[in-house]
Design a protein around this nucleic acid. Sequence first.
DNA 1: CCGTATTCCATTGGGTCCCAAGTAATTTTA
DNA 2: TAAAATTACTTGGGACCCAATGGAATACGG
Lengths: 161, 161
Amino acid sequence: MTDTQRILDAIRRLVRQLRLFDRAAQSRLGLSAAQLFILAELGKTPALSLGELADRTHTDQSSASTVVTRLVEARLVARQRSPRDARRLVLTLTRAGRAALRKAPPVTQQVLVNRIDALPPAERKRFADTFTQIVEEMGAEKSAPMLFEDEGHTATARRRK
Amino acid sequence: MTDTQRILDAIRRLVRQLRLFDRAAQSRLGLSAAQLFILAELGKTPALSLGELADRTHTDQSSASTVVTRLVEARLVARQRSPRDARRLVLTLTRAGRAALRKAPPVTQQVLVNRIDALPPAERKRFADTFTQIVEEMGAEKSAPMLFEDEGHTATARRRK
DNA sequence: CCGTATTCCATTGGGTCCCAAGTAATTTTA
DNA sequence: TAAAATTACTTGGGACCCAATGGAATACGG
């Protein structure tokens, strides 16, 4: 197996592991990783709008919306309209939200963090450098070689009712 | 920002990037990354059962099941029952499936692969080594420090109908 | 001031993933 | 050999993610 394939495989397994830990945490604490992540961000910076929150969590505005909705229903987040600009939201943690955050740190990632922290500092730095570089270049690569021809007759494999 | 945080951030962004490229490829080719991945695996090793396929793709059996169902509906995969053991499936690519695979390689990961392949071999190997190590140790870490108390009164933030 | 653009959200549709249950079929065991 | 346990899949439910839409509210040019 080439090193490239080993890396792809590692990514795939990593993502799966994270999802599994997420599930576990969710059924124990009642909060998913996404919910905790939003909660943490709101803990760091209160009074964010939905769009700002989406940016900070590297996710889509609509995704953030649904997660926030759940948190509001759970009474962990207060969702108000900005008085200055009625389009914007003003999101803040409730008392219960702060409490939840305090007792339920990002458990999911913790397993990963433990592994990373166990690395020798020099290796960790190298790893971080390489990883960051890859991701940044990936973001730059604007769907360059993605414009072939054809399309169509493979007809989107999807359910029919 | 610590190196650990940089790594976490890189992972998060990487995952998002992959999803975005996936979406793009999906709307161009009609096949999602998951579907292509399954297709590719079936191309490498025909006549797999669903469970074997799930193992090879590091995913859940039920997840594989739904993806395969879509591929069968798209007539890219043939799903037959094994004559020896009627519980098992025998999955193979159809003619159209092979054709689709030929003209639609794993486009999604390609962007990532390009970046990885651009690294100096030595750095790539170091990266792969570290990454593999992290993931393997993560898999070993059996939800060790995950058993706190409480639970309940945060009441699973979920929709109520 | 008015009409058009733009911005900010909520909602909906399509997909992926995982778990928990349920259903067949096969193997083991009493 | 009949009952019990195991294996292989499917289905339903919940959570997420993104794209596309639509509705308000605000900004802007004439």
